[in-house]
Design a protein around this nucleic acid. Structure first.
Lengths: 116, 116
DNA sequence: TCGGTAATCAACCGGATGGTTGAATAGAAT
DNA sequence: ATTCTATTCAACCATCCGGTTGATTACCGA
């Protein structure tokens, strides 16, 4: 699986999105991260493995805690993809607008072609 | 499921991402969309249902063709989410930098503390 | 009216996903 | 050395997902 797919898939889960949100505030251990949610620590550990696989977080072994750190650069992957097609879709609208303007302009003065 | 999750999930699939990319160029019918891929038309129809559920495309019944149209505004949902936490993560780095600067600044001029 | 074409519906299948519980690992503390 | 704490590994389960094939709907054209 390509990284972009993994990033999108990782953020498709609300719990994982919330974890990412919290990690923008500060690094946190697995159990700290797990505290607010009504699921087992093992489930949270799995979520972290998904986020890690997507490159969104890194875990550094520090004694028996493994503080989780957000790697915000990966966001750029997504924003680049999104912005590209957002821009493209916008340009398409503009082309369409121009086309409509052109058609309008062309048969309003002459009234030659029939486009009713 | 909330829409944001649906949008992320929809774009987690490469085929669907490619369809979205192509729809920024022009609207297309289901079979037109299906042509490049090595899957059945039914599979593509399912993909479209996912994209539609996420609000990324709309389908207007027009004779027996059902042209698919991209609704680019939904991108904003994602960009807003991403940008918010991207910004927040950046600010966190800046806070950290300031903190380090402060610690550095405090014992660099005086050379009182030893932080070799 | 009778095909032909575009698309969806329905049932099924294998693999991924999110959750569980229980056992294992590993460092800290006593 | 033993125990406590943090985390992961492993097996299992239900559900979801992307794909298939076959049947069905709906419109167009001859």
């Amino acid at each position: 699986m390509d990284q972009l797919s993994q990033v999108f898939a990782a953020l498709a889960d609300p719990t994982r999105r919330d974890m990412v949100a919290r990690l923008t505030e500060a690094d946190a251990s697995v159990s700290e991260l797990a505290a607010p949610y009504d699921v087992s620590i093992q489930a949270v550990s799995k979520h972290l493995k998904v986020l890690e696989g997507a490159g969104l977080v890194t875990r550094t072994k520090e004694a028996q805690r493994r503080p989780v750190h957000l790697e915000a650069e990966v966001f750029d992957l997504m924003t680049k993809w999104i912005e590209r097609y957002q821009r493209q879709a916008e340009q398409r609208y503009q082309r369409l607008d121009r086309l409509l303007d052109e058609l309008n302009g062309r048969d309003q003065p002459t009234t030659k072609g029939n486009a009713s």
